[in-house]
């Protein structure tokens, strides 16, 4: 049975016919829309490599059926930069060497952006570690990841202060 669904992906509305309700958001993005920045590390919600934002919230796209998310607004790693202008989190990951192999990186970055929007961790390194613990990194770039998040958080706090001043 075919199902028509529509999603907003990185700001653009996409309507399509889903011929199979088994397709997860992750496989939809990777194998059908060829947005391969989002990675599959475990496919079981245990590694965080597939983290995307759905309606502004970070989730594991491997455990989300696409069909159930009809109408959702999706942000993936491909939609984070503005042209050549990197998102502060992206730039901070480079500056603080918050990755090695880079495979978990899109998920880490999406998770970090989602975490900042949740506003639970602030600039407390311990809360950041806890709130980023859903993203495994086998290379062991955790120290750089925490530094990158702190740096980006600082920059974003500063710019929002400037805006409100």
């Amino acid at each position: 049975m075919n199902h028509s669904i529509s999603l907003t992906v990185n700001g653009a509305r996409r309507d399509f016919v889903l011929d199979d309700p088994r397709v997860t958001l992750l496989d939809l993005l990777r194998e059908r829309l060829h947005l391969t920045g989002t990675k599959k590390g475990c496919d079981r919600g245990q590694c965080g490599a597939c983290t995307i934002l759905v309606d502004g919230k970070r989730i594991n796209s491997c455990l989300a059926l696409a069909i159930s998310h009809d109408g959702a607004d999706i942000l993936t790693i491909e939609g984070v930069a503005r042209g050549d202008q990197l998102h502060p989190v992206q730039a901070a990951f480079i500056a603080h060497d918050g990755f090695q192999c880079g495979f978990c990186t899109p998920g880490q970055i999406m998770s970090a952006i989602g975490m900042m929007q949740e506003a639970q961790a602030g600039n407390d390194p311990e809360r950041i570690r806890e709130c980023m613990s859903g993203n495994l990194c086998r290379c062991g770039a955790y120290a750089g990841i925490v530094d990158a998040v702190l740096d980006a958080q600082g920059q974003m706090d500063e710019s929002s202060q400037r805006r409100s001043a």
Binding site: G45, G48, T51, K57, R58, I59, N60, L63, A64, S111, G114, M115, E118, C131, M132, S133, G134, N135
Partner: peptide, 9 residues
């Protein structure tokens, strides 16, 4: 419980 991503969903 779980991770932030899982708790969100």
């Amino acid at each position: 419980g779980a991770s932030a991503q899982l708790r969100n969903a």
